[in-house]
């Protein structure tokens, strides 16, 4: 814990977990999609549902989807700004099974028409964690450049992806594997120490058996 975890961050109130963390969830979602969504369907669970309206959790997530940082003074006006930007927003509350108390479930519509779903939680102090993408478990926080690869569960996939990373000189900081069933769809979550080039991402996306390759770098504009 550094001194700037004690002093700071600069943020729009009232709550680091319910407001600042919620902005970060929206930002993460925007980065994962790569663009501003056309529409966002947001389900708030647990304490997010119970106190979200009072804490501005709903407006905070929308602000993040619009690309605002947690200290952006326009966060309270995000509904209005979303309307002006042509982004449709739907907010609901509900119950998610076995979810952390501060969890949001987002269904985002890409300008191309395809949808992506995302489950993410706010862990306190503004820190957040993604739990699942498109229904498949994937745990990461977006602090490092992250690659999420959806692929067919077959032998050799992991080797081919890590070989591509090696060839491009990318150092892997952590790696997780999840799958829905043997031989079904699998997910690799790879956190790297440095940003990954577009070329490398294309190489991985073109590998036989890779269904989708999503890249997240919170330090770049999206």
């Amino acid at each position: 814990m550094t001194i700037f975890d004690i002093m700071g961050p600069i943020m729009v109130g009232p709550s680091s977990s319910h407001t600042a963390g919620a902005v970060r969830i929206g930002l993460l979602a925007r980065h994962l999609l790569g663009v501003q969504p056309l529409a966002a369907d947001i389900l708030l669970h647990g304490s997010f549902a119970a106190t979200g309206a009072g804490h501005g959790t709903d407006r905070a997530i929308v602000a993040g989807l619009l690309g605002m940082q947690p200290d952006h003074p326009d966060i309270p006006r995000s509904f209005q700004l979303a309307k002006e930007a042509g982004m449709d927003v739907y907010i609901h509350t509900g119950e998610l099974r076995n979810a952390h108390p501060n969890t949001a479930y987002l269904v985002l519509t890409h300008p191309s028409g395809r949808t992506t779903t995302l489950s993410a939680s706010s862990l306190g102090g503004g820190r957040v964690q993604v739990n699942a993408i498109d229904g498949l478990a994937a745990t990461f926080n977006g602090e490092l450049p992250t690659l999420v690869v959806r692929n067919v569960d077959r032998p050799g996939m992991l080797f081919e992806v890590s070989a591509a990373l090696y060839q491009h000189g990318a150092n892997i900081a952590s790696m997780q594997l999840h799958r829905d069933r043997r031989g079904g769809l699998a997910v690799m979550v790879i956190e790297c120490d440095q940003p990954l080039s577009e070329e490398l991402r294309r190489d991985i996306a073109n590998l036989d058996g890779v269904a989708r390759c999503t890249y997240l770098n919170m330090n770049e504009e999206a």
């Binding site: 002093m7 700071g8 943020m11 680091s16 407001t19 966060i75």
Partner: peptide
């Protein structure tokens, strides 16, 4: 009121 503050140590 959703104004900008510095968490010190919390909001």
């Amino acid at each position: 009121c959703m104004g900008r503050i510095v968490a010190a140590p919390t909001a």
